[in-house]
């Protein structure tokens, strides 16, 4: 193990492609690529974000759902959705290093998978259907419109679980993998998203799916959080000692529960 512990003076001499954490860094840098494409799909290509009004008239709904750029948006989305798994794996690797029960890691992974399918894939498919075959009955499009937005916001239960799990793991962790305050920030993220449950009750006003309380406050908390959390994940990858890297490789080859979270 001692031969592998490269000291700092030595590290700068190692060419980048021999960096022991190269795999982690490649995964990490796929995240901004993913979010850029993701933003492209949801904002300028489909115009589904910021959310349209639940009270929109049928003519408005039809013209939105028959826009041809929705097809491009859907095509890009089905190709890049897999990158969301890589993005979530970046958190998962850090949760795995924490001194918490593995149940946190499994809950996080399962929650993020379900959330991505319901929250990203379903709405875009609903809207894309309108553009795919423009002859659909407007009434059917109106229903798909509701379904699309409700499943878009409706995935927040999964994300609530994700953020709750991540927040608890960070706060309980004794290895100081991610800073404590990030755990608390994640807890606000969790608490504010609880308000999204109201989209099933209110069709207008602050609690509708385009409202101040159900949507805009969440976004104001979420966007900086998403950036900060990735900066913290980057720092965590950077600060990980190479000896730990080596021992975790051994450990995954021959799992030893006591080592994993003692």
């Amino acid at each position: 193990m001692t031969e592998l512990a490269v000291d700092t003076a030595n590290r700068s001499a190692v060419p980048w492609f021999k960096n022991k954490k190269l795999d982690q860094y490649i995964c990490f840098w796929s995240v901004p690529v993913f979010y850029t494409l993701f933003g492209l799909v949801f904002v300028p290509l489909s115009y589904m974000m910021p959310p349209r009004s639940p009270a929109a008239g049928i003519a408005e709904v039809v013209s939105f759902m028959q826009s041809p750029t929705l097809l491009i948006a859907s095509a890009i989305l089905i190709l890049v959705l897999g990158l969301s798994a890589v993005a979530n794996a970046c958190y998962a690797v850090q949760i795995r290093r924490m001194s918490v029960s593995p149940v946190f890691l499994y809950a996080f992974l399962a929650g993020s998978m379900v959330g991505a399918i319901v929250g990203c894939l379903f709405p875009m498919f609903c809207f894309g259907l309108g553009a795919f075959r423009p002859g659909y009955d407007p009434e059917i499009l109106a229903m798909l419109y509701d379904f699309g937005y409700l499943s878009f916001i409706g995935s927040l239960g999964c994300f609530c679980l994700n953020w709750g799990v991540l927040s608890l793991a960070i706060v309980l962790d004794k290895n100081a993998i991610l800073p404590k305050w990030l755990g608390y920030y994640t807890a606000w993220q969790f608490a504010t998203e609880l308000f999204a449950a109201t989209v099933w009750i209110a069709k207008d006003g602050p609690f509708a799916w385009d409202g101040l309380m159900a949507f805009w406050f969440n976004i104001v908390i979420y966007v900086p959080w998403q950036i900060i959390v990735y900066v913290c994940v980057f720092m965590a990858i950077k600060n990980q000692s190479e000896t730990e890297l080596y021992s975790s490789e051994l450990e995954s080859a021959a799992p030893n529960e006591k080592l994993a979270y003692s």
Partner: peptide, 26 residues
């Protein structure tokens, strides 16, 4: 208490504050 708890408290107070102001507006 711990300073990380104060970080949480101050943020929580601002979030609730925003909710209170929106309540007053509506």
């Amino acid at each position: 208490g711990e300073s990380s708890m104060w970080f949480f408290i101050i943020g929580d107070l601002f979030i609730f504050g925003a909710y209170f102001v929106s309540y007053m507006y509506y």
